[in-house]
């Protein structure tokens, strides 16, 4: 499905501030995988996401999606098959446009944007149905500008937008980190429901180790631009937060911060 071969990114190369954000990453994601990624700040988790989505050009290596080499494909072209959620709920939606307009834009993902009406009559019923599945009452506020919604509502809407045309790959970059615990849990539940229903291959970064082990079928641990642990199968089933912390400190050069326990 998704394959990364020797992917490296260096920021500020050849200066005193040189930082190797990714070092020779090799990753093989299979169809239907739900991979969770953990690691301390600066481990390269977000850089990995940005490399896959095309937001950052990579310095070395190659990336394949569905057998096709997408290494030099531009961000917006990769986005036809990759859905993405950011940590900041404000990033995923256009605030001055209404809920239905945002959904209309997302619904034409991957197609050519023509001079056809942005929202067709027959789509409105479909949007309404999809919104009611979020169970947030947004289906009755379709003409409301998205800027008036709360962070949690916006993130749930972004999730819907990223998956309304089923993507090949869904990238979640700490998408619940900026929400209050209750909303975060709700958005996480929604995420799992949607991912399971459409069997979407997903990579999720999280700071919450419990969530990292609770959701998905594989967990990656990153440190200093490298994947230091890949946990799956039986090993993962018997894994606890304590054991994982121990494993981490045995394998990583730096110690995991307390923040990760949250």
């Amino acid at each position: 499905m998704l394959k990364l071969e020797n992917v490296s990114i260096t920021f500020n190369a050849n200066t005193v501030n040189e930082r190797k954000a990714l070092r020779n990453i090799n990753l093989d994601v299979k169809d239907g995988d739900f991979i969770t990624v953990i690691g301390s700040n600066g481990a390269g988790k977000s850089t990995l996401m940005n490399a896959i989505s095309g937001a950052y050009p990579i310095d070395e290596g190659s990336i394949y999606l569905d057998g096709k080499n997408i290494t030099s494909l531009k961000e917006h072209k990769r986005a036809t098959r990759i859905g993405r959620l950011f940590q900041d709920p404000l990033r995923g939606t256009a605030p001055n446009m209404t809920i239905e307009e945002n959904l209309g834009l997302a619904y034409s993902r991957g197609k050519r944007r023509s001079l056809m009406p942005g929202i067709r009559k027959k789509d409105i019923g479909f949007f309404r149905e999809k919104l009611s599945e979020l169970d947030l009452g947004l289906e009755d506020r379709m003409k409301t500008p998205v800027g008036l919604l709360s962070g949690g509502q916006r993130q749930a809407l972004t999730l819907l937008m990223a998956t309304i045309v089923t993507p090949k790959l869904l990238l979640l970059d700490e998408h619940t980190a900026a929400l209050d615990p209750k909303t975060a849990e709700k958005v996480m539940e929604l995420t799992e429901r949607i991912v399971k229903k459409d069997n979407i291959t997903t990579i999720m970064i999280t700071h919450n180790i419990n969530n990292a082990l609770k959701y998905g079928n594989k967990t990656l641990v990153m440190s200093q631009g490298k994947i230091i642990l890949e946990i799956e199968g039986e090993e993962r089933k018997n894994m606890t937060v304590e054991k994982l912390m121990k494993l981490y400190s045995d394998n990583a050069d730096d110690s995991m911060s307390d923040k990760m326990l949250l």
Partner: peptide
């Protein structure tokens, strides 16, 4: 309109 409103979202929506 979305380009002026939120460029991140626009690129993530394959525009």
């Amino acid at each position: 309109r979305a380009t002026g409103d939120n460029e991140y979202m626009v690129r993530a929506s394959s525009i």
